[in-house]
């Protein structure tokens, strides 16, 4: 029962923060991806960095249970699936989580995305045996690996570097990049002046 309570609290907070940070607004996703407004990119990088520093720092201090880590396998399909997701994410401005939050905010097109998503997920369920057979799901570079070797973790390290220190270093790097990233990369379009 307590796990359900945690799901309600953390899930609720996640939905609210996605809404407030603008990640469920396709206009802000589109502007991030066409490189005309990188505020959301900065927020995402800062979030990953913050999470990383706190998690690995907490592990080193013995405050965070290493067993809570859940590392997904690496295989060619991860890249291929990333390409597909990236295309659809740019086209619609939604990813699975933000479509739910967008719909919750009253966006009707987000409901259409969810309908398409349920069909896409069903199509994967139907084609899973063929996908397995294709070799796309065969593990590469050890499968479930972290970049360094995290002490006491059940996952192998891609390198022998201390995984917790590397995690903190990379986390800090994400935070630095969030700060130095320019606000926009592409030039302002003439159309923007009229809006």
């Amino acid at each position: 029962m307590s796990s359900i309570l945690l799901a309600l609290i953390i899930g609720g907070a996640f939905g609210a923060v996605l809404d407030r940070v603008g990640a469920a607004n396709p206009t802000l996703i589109g502007k991030m991806l066409n490189l005309s407004n990188l505020h959301l990119m900065k927020a995402i990088l800062l979030a990953i960095g913050t999470g990383s520093v706190l998690m690995f720092g907490g592990q080193m201090l013995g405050l965070v249970d290493v067993a809570h880590m859940s590392v997904k396998a690496a295989y060619i399909g991860v890249f291929a699936g990333g390409l597909l997701l990236g295309f659809g994410w740019a086209l619609s401005g939604y990813c699975p989580g933000t479509s739910l939050v967008g719909a919750a905010a009253g966006r009707k097109d987000a409901l259409v995305f969810i309908a398409g998503g349920l069909l896409g997920a069903a199509a994967y369920m139907a084609t899973y045996p063929a996908v397995t057979h294709s070799g796309l799901l065969d593990k590469i570079a050890g499968g479930k690996v972290t970049l360094g070797t995290v002490p006491d973790a059940k996952y192998e390290g891609l390198t022998a570097l201390p995984g917790d220190l590397l995690g903190i270093a990379l986390g800090l790097a994400f935070i630095v990049v969030a700060f130095i990233l320019p606000e926009r990369i592409t030039q302002k379009q003439p159309a923007a002046a009229t809006v």
């Binding site: 619609s92 097109d109 997920a121």
Partner: peptide, 21 residues
């Protein structure tokens, strides 16, 4: 456009074993 995108995103996410989150 959004329906097609939803289909492609979720097929891709399941193929990859996860999404943006």
């Amino acid at each position: 456009a959004v329906f097609v995108a939803g289909f492609v995103v979720l097929y891709g996410a399941r193929l990859a074993g996860g999404c943006t989150s």
